[in-house]
Amino acid sequence: MKNNFDRVFKMSFAGVYPHYIEKAEKKGRTKAEVDEIIHWLTGYDQKTLQKHLDDKTNFETFFRQAKVNPNSSKITGVICGYRVEEIEDKLIQQIRYLDKLIDELAKGKAMEKILRK
């Protein structure tokens, strides 16, 4: 399983980011909402997010440099067949948190619920 993690860690965040936007927009949501979720989860502002995108930062570096929101522990549910709250590897858990939040956005959930306010 570690090899799968390594592959995910090395993936460029910039390579996946357009897919997050596409998933949201297909369901009538916006890039701004995707960015708001990323800002909330990582603590990055738009300038820092853009720098990571421009630099093609990999997921490992992207999340290791983030100040992950303490309320992220309130994110629960299943993504890719795993309960996010039970994932032991913190980095994979954070990546799956983002997947789960984008999923919730695409399913029409209200932003204040997605951002665990």
Rank of each mutant, 00 (worst) to 15 (best):
R96C: 10
G81D: 01
E104Y: 07
I102P: 01
Q46W: 06
S72P: 00
D103V: 03
Q94T: 10
N58I: 15
R96E: 10
Y97T: 02
L101H: 00
N69F: 09
I75D: 01
C80H: 13
P70Y: 14
L105D: 04
D55N: 15
K90T: 13
D35W: 04
S72K: 06
L49Y: 12
T76E: 05
F62M: 05
Q50C: 07
Q65E: 15
Y82P: 00
A66C: 06
K100Q: 07
G77T: 10
D55L: 13
K100V: 02
D54C: 03
G108A: 02
D89M: 04
F63P: 02
A106T: 08
N58W: 11
K90V: 10
D35E: 14
G77C: 03
V78M: 12
D99H: 10
L41C: 11
K56N: 14
K47N: 14
Q93G: 05
R64D: 08
L98E: 01
R83A: 11
L91S: 05
V68K: 01
R64P: 03
S73N: 07
K100F: 00
Q65V: 04
G43S: 03
P70V: 11
K31W: 06
A32V: 12
K107P: 00
K107G: 03
N58D: 15
K90D: 15
S73Q: 12
L53K: 00
A32S: 12
I95F: 05
L53Q: 05
T42C: 06
V78W: 11
A66N: 05
N71F: 13
Y44G: 01
V34I: 10
L105V: 07
Q65A: 14
E104C: 05
K100C: 05
E33V: 09
G81M: 06
I87R: 00
T57F: 10
Q50Y: 13
D55H: 10
Y44Q: 04
R64E: 14
Q46T: 14
Q65R: 12
F63W: 09
E36N: 06
L91Y: 11
G77L: 07
L101P: 06
E85K: 00
G108C: 06
L105F: 11
F59Y: 12
Q46I: 11
K51N: 15
F63T: 04
Q93I: 08
Y97W: 07
D35R: 00
G77V: 05
E104K: 03
K56D: 12
N69E: 10
L91I: 10
H52P: 08
Q94Y: 12
E88G: 09
T76M: 04
A32K: 06
L105I: 08
K51V: 13
T61W: 03
C80M: 14
N69W: 07
W40T: 04
G108T: 04
E60R: 02
D99F: 09
T76K: 07
E60W: 08
D55Y: 11
G77N: 05
L91V: 08
D54Y: 12
Y97L: 05
K51F: 14
D45S: 13
T57P: 09
E104H: 03
F62Q: 01
I87W: 02
D99N: 12
L101Y: 00
K67P: 06
K74H: 09
I79G: 00
